[in-house]
Nucleic acid binder design. Structure first.
Lengths: 125, 125
DNA sequence: AGGCGCGGTTACTTCAACGTCACCGCCCAG
DNA sequence: CTGGGCGGTGACGTTGAAGTAACCGCGCCT
């Protein structure tokens, strides 16, 4: 079972799920919310570079997909928090963050090599 | 060390890395190439719905970032294959695929609940 | 020689995502 | 009752990513 679904087929709903979770903002939001429930402004400050609109849109999409929810907390403020489903997403997404941060130098080096190789091409051997 | 880099800062190069790897086409290509080196057309058929242009662009970006490379094989045909760096990416991305495929029903149910709740709003209590 | 499939590239278009900015109601402090 | 911060929403414009389709050289088959 479950192998009735495959992300390799464009029409399979699992493809849409993959597209939603394989996304930098999704990853950052889920990782931030794993620590604790957060308010809109806290997320806005936490995910540097995101605009209010994109944050609002992303939060609504994640809420629709059942990964987070939005409830008024004991102090009277609304907060976003992971659902049970959202919590299962933390580990895989966290792994992406760790990968990205720990392989920066490798990637930067590879880009350098690629770009200078391309330059040498253009400048004739 | 390595915590000089953080994906939460917009200017940090690790953010660009995260954006590249947290991407459905990247994930699908890395997963397909994990089995074995593949030719352009094989990838094109393997990742249903991708166009030649997007595939070519994505492959060039991954090559530049040092995750794959492109070499002429023993049979005279070019093939794309994972580099050592690319191989380290397989496990985290594979986890996303597994998540997407195994939680399809949960996500679909959540969407249903969200959408019908929204309908009831619109239709007045 | 002619036609086909492969592995792209190019030019042009389209479309969805994102940015900008103004505005809103609510609550709290002064 | 005014001003500011919070938590958004909406209208609009821009950009960049993706789609479309035509074309290309190469090698293979016939």
């Amino acid at each position: 079972m479950t192998r009735e679904w495959t992300v390799f087929s464009a029409q399979c709903p699992s493809r849409q799920s993959l597209a939603r979770i394989a996304n930098k903002w999704t990853a950052m939001i889920i990782i931030l919310l794993h620590e604790q429930p957060l308010r809109f402004g806290e997320l806005h400050r936490g995910a540097d570079g995101i605009t209010k609109k994109v944050l609002a849109d992303t939060l609504r999409a994640l809420e629709r997909d059942g990964m987070i929810d939005h409830a008024t907390h004991s102090d009277g403020h609304g907060r976003y928090e992971l659902t049970e489903l959202g919590r299962t997403l933390h580990e895989p997404l966290r792994a992406l963050q760790v990968w990205a941060e720990s392989h920066v130098e490798d990637v930067l080096d590879a880009q350098d090599r690629y770009d200078t190789a391309a330059d040498e091409q253009t400048l004739g051997h």
